[in-house]
Design a protein around this nucleic acid. Sequence first.
DNA 1: ACCAAGGTCTTTTTT
DNA 2: AGACCTTGGT
Length: 642
Amino acid sequence: MLEELNQEQKEAVTTTEGPLLVLAGAGTGKTKVLTTRLAYIINQGKARPYECLAVTFTNKASNEMKERLASMIGHQNANDLWMGTFHSICLRILRANCERIGYQKDFIILNEDDSEKIVKEILGDSDKYSPKNILNAISRWKDQALNHLKVNTSGSEFLVDARNIYTLYQKRLKEMNALDFGDLILNCIELFNLDKDILEKYQRKFKYIMVDEYQDTNTAQYLWLKLLAYGHNNIACVGDDDQSIYAWRGAEIGNILRFEKDFKNAKVIRLESNYRSTKNILDCASKLISHNEQRLGKDLRVAPLMNGDGEKVMVRGLFNDLAEAAFISDAIRLAINDGVNPNKFAILVRASFLTRLFEEAFLVRNIKYKITGGLRFYERKEVMDLMAYLRLLVHKNDDLAFLRIINVPKRAIGNATVDSIKEYARFKGLSLYDGAKEMVKEDLLKKAASKSVLSFINLFESWDNELDNMEHFELLKKIVDEIDYPNKMKLDKDKTSNINELIKSLADFKTIENLLEHVSLNFGDEADKTDDKVSIMTLHGAKGLEFDYVFLPGWEDGIFPSSRTVDEKADEGIEEERRLAYVGITRGRKNVVISFANSRRVYDQWYHSNPSRFLSELPQENIRVWLDRGVSMRMRENEKQY
DNA sequence: ACCAAGGTCTTTTTT
DNA sequence: AGACCTTGGT
Ligand SMILES: Nc1ncnc2c1ncn2[C@@H]1O[C@H](COP(=O)(O)OP(=O)(O)OP(=O)(O)O)[C@@H](O)[C@H]1O
């Protein structure tokens, strides 16, 4: 097990006691070290699997690590580990203990859409603020582990208002027995602070704690870890400050910078041998990231006896975005014809709308691809609608689900009726569903509306009766039929097939609640990595992955670095964009191609675009430049920008 | 309560 | 361009 590792890696694996930080650049085997370390602890008998807590950044990463561990420590052991994202682990702890902080065990988890609707409702007619901005403020507070009582508003009118809305928002959530995403961590911390017995139980339980991608943890996650690590003080974090790319979501690069101060007697191990990429790729990445000021600074070199110089990184300038997509997809087509597996290629873009052109180019050339990022399956309107039926079916107090579907498809229940139901339910302290039911019984609605509402309720009561006798996916099929969804909503073929997909996927879950939870935690649609497809994804989505051939299109000022970041966050923003570029380049094993286009269509309008400033930060001796006629790598002044 | 017409935003990244 | 929302007429 240890023989595959170098000296420093071995040291990191066998240093099991006390706080440990593995600080190392891309491709140095941080994840591999973490995985091996976990196996080492189990195989040495230092702890039982359920005494180990391992936090990964995504659910996908967690599944992959579990899979690799299964071959090292056995399937059963791998499954018994407490492994998952911060959110899924906190959820597990809260399900078991949430009554202590005033929630019922079957609390629901709201998605962003739901949260926004609640904020909108609180804001009412006022359009002083956008719900998005308010919700963003609330989420960032939660990332900092600040509940609505702790928020410091320091005089700004916006912050004061946002704080007041935060208070109302939490009240509303509690009424619905609901938590949002950020609450999972915040409430877990509050549970620990409130009940020392519960905290101590988990402190004793988790003999070893391990965290991947530590550079992208937020304050709340740090505090949570600190509470748990207080027991055995065995906490190992791995990360790379140069790969911190989630500050916009509340991640605190300070966590990794402060590690030695936060955890007394911490040992820091640096890994400097890169086992992934060629020298040309590494030199490009290192030079680029050296333009950042805020960094710890690390060396990165090709591991001995590995890879070698390889080919130079190509910088390709093209006339427009279509030519760029054609160039890349032609290159991939040719390589596939030569027998290269499509899954060796990745196209990594700054923003998900940039995947569009590649999708089209691939379809024309008959190249198999998979797109990750952008609108996810469970975020599609038609899927969310039907999920709302399932939500209301299992939780009659899910008011948001009720509001979503009470008149979808149209059943002649308009705003006036819904408002009167809201008012009545609020007055009586009932859920909207129960309120509506009672209003029908007491004959409090207009005649036509009453009839429609009754038939809505009757549908649910009939489905309730089937809940125990019928396979869930068949019940969903029945629901779709009875409300005549595809027909009434005039769904096209794609959307109808999404519905069927949803019905099929429900068959994989024991209960409807399982499906709902799976969706809330953003477990993807488990695309198997075994399939032979080109990956098209955002740079953020590519974190932790590696590919033989990596294409990085759209290196244009305004797109990458994104104009929004530049406007809003100036230097700090640019540095994070540069880290994103570093992440992109270091995904490549053999070959990296960076490209930019002179003009690009955005919102159906043509814009001239300047080459990204990052291009001029690459070392001349490691790149090979190929520009179309009339395309220059220098910036043009005074052109129309995005 | 519904619908058609017109207006507006959209695309930064996601647990 | 297209999705989404508001508006005013029915
Ligand atoms: N000692 C080693 N010998 C051979 N290959 C290694 C060794 N250590 C790591 N590797 C390989 O190097 C690659 C990168 O490893 P890994 O993904 O663990 O790095 P990482 O530091 O987590 O990277 P990143 O920060 O970019 O996500 C993997 O393919 C891994 O198998």
